[in-house]
Every structure is written in C-alpha cells, then in structure tokens.
C-alpha cells in the first residue's frame, strides 16, 4: 500500500508530537517529586508584608549608619588567618537597626535590635568580614522552614493588627527546641540605648588557621563601660534610639568588646537553638570603637548588604541551616531594593 506521506514527513510529525509530550511529562514528574521547601522569594515576601517600602531592606528596614575602628588585639591570630583578626586597627562601616520591615517604625517598640559590621583591612576588599548580630543569643528554631512557620505564627492578623497569642503559644509548644530562646526571652529587658545591648552572632562559624585547623566559635559584641551619661530618651519619639545614639557620639566613642566563645566537641555547632554552657572558653579579640553615625539615607551603610557569609580567608560558615539560608534571603531582599533604587522608586 502506497503511504500518503513521505517517510521524512512522518518523522517530522512524530518529532512534533513526541517531543512536547515528553517535555510535559518531565515537567509534571519534577513538580510531583517531593515536598517543596520555603524559597527565598516566599521568605522575603512574608517579611516584606502587604505594604512595600521600595528601596528599603525587607527586614531590619529602619537603622542608622555607624563608622569606627576595630582595634584587634591579635588574640585569635593563631586560630584564624583572617587579616582583620591580627593585631591592628581595621576600619568598619556598620549599622544599628531594629527588626521589622517599616523604615519609620517607632524605635522603642521593636522586639529585636541589631548591630551589623563590615570590617576590612584598608583597601583590601578580599579581607572584608561582614557580620550581622542580634540581641537574642539563640534562635527558637533551627531550619528555614521552621523559621518561616515561626514568622507566620508571630504575624499579626492583617485586619486587627493584633498577634494571636494562642497561635504563638501553640507554635512554641510544638517546637521544644525553642526552650533556650524562651528562657532568654523571659529574662531579657531591652537596654536603655543601642550602646547598652549585647549583640550575638547566633550562628556558629569556623575560625580557620594557616594549617587548615578549624575551631567553631560564636561571637558577641559586649558593651564597654561608657565614659559619659546616657541621655534620657523621649518615649514618644519614634527615633528615640537613633537620636540618643547621635547625641552620645558627639561626646564620646561607644565601644564594645568582641568576645569569641569557643565550642567544645560536645556542642552541635550546626544548631543555632542551643545556648552553649557558660563554662566554654571565651577570648576577647579586641574593641569595636564607634566614633560616628550618619542617617541611613545617604549614609555609608545605606546600600550595603550585611550578608554574614561575606567572610575573608580564615573564617568559614558551619553547616548551620539558618546561617546557610541567610545569604540567599538577604540576596533576594537586596535584589529587590537595588532594582527599586535603579528604577527611581526609592524615596
């Protein structure tokens, strides 16, 4: 029987049918495979909330830039080959901030305060160490998916603007790993200035020396004794903490000791929910000396992304899932606000 189409045409028809079917099957199979984790976009969408503030950070949107010098005493120079941990003076750009996505939120209402630093050796960008520290010493949960759930539980009802205490209680009850966090929260009272808080790395990192030996650590910035008085804040001033900081810096430098706690073999360094025992060895690596502040708008910290995974040789991330997720989440927020600045939406 003579066929009505040529062999070549037959091949073309098969090609046009088989290929799309195969691709559609592959796509369907890939979307069925496994439960999907929270993505960077989903996470930042949640932090961003319903009202967007173009050009601003999606988390810790409100802040003030600071500048100063890290006076490193070299105590860690045998544990780490990072140049900024050798003896010396290393300038930094930094930022004090409060939690939340609103760049004009009242300072005194925020539950978390933060200190971020970008320290480097003179003009050497490869020596740069960025750190983003917070007032809590530990996380309530140890994975990005669980942290997402925590944020959902803590989110106020969009209509009433009130948090749901039952939802929050249920969350913590179903996540017993939040024990250390809750204990801290019960005893914590906010300091009466940015300068008076202890700021924690929360996540553990590795100090790595020239031989490649790794030592896991957490660090914290602990306030040094202030020379002068702490100006009283007006409770009604939405910028109370920032105003106070600016006033204080006119009269004195604000200093913190940078303390490193060394993990022992027993500590699970990938778990950011567990507080390490107070018996752990602590090494003072030097003084963070803040000598000036600038408003965020137009300030040196304005367009910086304090990604805690921007690390020099001599510092490395541990396998902490929260730490590993911070970079991607920060990058998504940064991408959005950078684009908004480019297209002129940032006011």
């Amino acid at each position: 029987m003579k066929s009505k189409i040529t062999e070549k045409q037959a091949r073309l028809i098969i090609f046009i049918i088989v290929l799309p079917v195969a691709l559609m099957l592959a796509y369907k199979l890939s979307s069925l495979a496994g439960k999907k984790s929270v993505s960077a976009s989903q996470f930042v969408d949640l932090q961003q909330g319903a009202i967007s503030h173009p050009g601003y950070r999606r988390a810790h949107a409100k802040g003030i830039c600071i500048s100063g010098v890290f006076e490193s005493n070299g105590a860690l120079s045998e544990l780490s080959e990072a140049s900024v941990l050798r003896t010396g003076q290393f300038p930094f750009v930094g930022r004090f901030s409060i939690a939340g996505n609103d760049p004009s939120a009242p300072d005194l209402n925020a539950p978390v305060r933060s200190l971020a630093l970008s320290i480097q050796q003179s003009d050497d960008l490869s020596s740069q160490w960025r750190s983003a520290m917070n007032t809590p010493p530990v996380m309530a949960v140890g994975t990005p998916d669980e942290f997402y759930e925590q944020l959902l539980a803590l989110a106020p009802d969009p209509e009433t603007n009130q948090r749901d205490p039952n939802k929050i209680k249920a969350f913590f009850a179903s996540h017993p790993q939040s024990k250390d966090f809750l204990e801290w929260k019960q005893t914590y009272t906010p300091a009466n200035s940015f300068a008076g808080e202890i700021y924690n790395s929360i996540n553990a990192f590795y100090l790595v020396n020239q031989s490649g030996t790794k030592q896991a650590v957490r660090w914290q910035a602990v306030p040094s004794k202030l020379q002068g008085d702490i100006p009283v804040m007006q409770a009604s001033d939405p910028d109370a903490l920032q105003q106070q900081l600016t006033t204080m810096l006119q009269n004195q430098a604000i200093q913190f000791d940078l303390l490193f706690t060394l993990a022992s073999e027993e500590d699970d360094v990938s778990d950011p929910t567990v507080l390490w025992p107070s018996t752990r060895q602590v090494i003072n690596a030097g003084k963070i000396s803040i000598d000036g502040s600038q408003a965020q708008k137009g300030g040196a910290c304005e367009h910086l992304n304090f990604d805690p995974l921007i690390l020099p040789q001599g510092l490395e991330a541990t396998a902490d899932p929260i730490l590993r997720a911070r970079s991607a989440a920060y990058a998504e927020s940064y991408r959005r606000r950078a684009k908004e600045v480019l297209i002129g939406e940032y006011k």
């Binding site: 984790s37 929270v38 993505s39 960077a40 976009s41 996470f43 990005p144 995974l309 991330a317 396998a319 899932p321 590993r324 997720a325 970079s327 991607a328 989440a329 990058a331 998504e332």
Partner: peptide, 14 residues
Amino acid sequence: SMVESLAVWQPLAL
C-alpha cells in the same frame, strides 16, 4: 535553583 534555595548546599552551589 540556587537563587531561590534556602538549602544548606546553596552557598557552595553559589
């Protein structure tokens, strides 16, 4: 995939 991922391997992939 890496720009959306919050997984532990993401920084290495990057």
